[in-house]
Design a protein around this nucleic acid. Structure first.
Length: 289
DNA sequence: CTCGGTCAAGGATAC
DNA sequence: GTATCCTTGACCGAG
């Protein structure tokens, strides 16, 4: 099963997400700020359920929700967006749509969520980011948060130990949603697999990151172990093509036929494949065609 | 209307 | 320490 992330280019009016900035909001009075934030959140959540409907109509049952549905969610702590009736209604629509249509959803906290940072304020903020994702996940029925290990400061071993220690301090509710993904600069598939096995969480294999960064490990030898980390859930891998060349870390607009074949050969019927490319759903439709 | 500078946030690197 | 890059896409606002 193929899926795509966030933006849906096929939907002109409902396929994208709004946002705002602190700088802009600071020019408004408090009530206008909240009004603006609410309006953006409701629109973004509404668009997400529209995208889910579009997915079902187009035979797509795998989708990653945007992390930026609630604007400035971890900044405006006095704005209790999760107590807003309109927002709750929209979240419930997403939950119902994904469950009724059988769409497997996930989220992927961005680069600012560095749980293993050496800076305590960064760790605290990362936990806030995870709490936000968890809260939104609970309301929308999402059960999977895909994360990178993060910083490599102090060396890989120390950095992974920091990750484990901080992971263990998280709420159980968050821990049961987390999965870890290998990255393209530091933590290899083997590094992340070992960490996932130790922590008892699923591993998302990113094939492009593996291509950019590996220590010669043989993926076919890791395949069964990776699947095992998912227990009864459907394992997932990420696929993208390099923009300018194979190991270019920048993502291309589309997936090359060669990369798609490589991924499907590896995945068989055992893995869902999440596409990461600029043209999103359009790239997926091209592959299916 | 169009286009470009700007934006909460981290990390790594080079100087 | 500080500057700069990596890198996303939506937005404001100048023209």
């Amino acid at each position: 099963m193929l899926g795509f992330a966030c933006i849906c280019k096929s939907l002109n009016d409902n396929g994208c997400f709004k946002t705002t900035t602190i700088k802009y909001l600071s020019k408004l009075d408090k009530s206008s700020q909240i009004k603006k934030l609410r309006s953006i959140a409701v629109d973004n959540l509404y668009n997400t359920s529209k995208i889910l409907e579009w997915c079902a109509e187009n035979g797509i049952f795998l989708y990653r929700m945007s992390s930026d549905l609630i604007p400035l969610a971890t900044y405006y702590e006095d704005w209790h967006w999760w107590e807003d009736a309109d927002i709750l209604k929209q979240c419930d629509n997403i939950k119902t749509a994904s469950q009724n249509k059988g769409i497997r959803i996930s989220m992927h906290p961005d680069q600012f969520c560095v749980l293993n940072s050496e800076k305590s304020n960064v760790v605290e903020n990362s936990i806030k980011i995870l709490q936000y994702h968890n809260r939104l996940s609970c309301l929308t029925g999402n059960k999977l948060l895909v994360l990178h290990v993060g910083s490599s400061a102090g060396g890989k071993k120390t950095a992974m130990e920091r990750f484990s220690a901080n992971f263990k301090m998280l709420d159980t509710d968050i821990k049961t949603k987390l999965a870890l993904e290998n990255d393209d600069k530091v933590f290899t598939a083997l590094d992340v697999l070992g960490l996932c096995e130790t922590l008892g969480i699923p591993m998302v294999l990113d094939l492009h990151h593996y291509r950019c960064r590996n220590e010669g490990e043989d993926l076919s030898a890791l395949r069964a172990r990776i699947i095992k980390t998912w227990q009864k859930k459907k394992p997932k891998l990420h696929l993208s093509s390099g923009r300018a060349y194979d190991t270019d870390r920048s993502h291309a607009d589309y997936i090359t036929p060669e990369d798609y074949k490589m991924a499907t050969d590896f995945a068989g019927n055992d893995f869902d494949i999440m596409l990461e490319c600029k043209e999103k759903d359009l790239a997926l439709l091209r592959l299916v065609k």
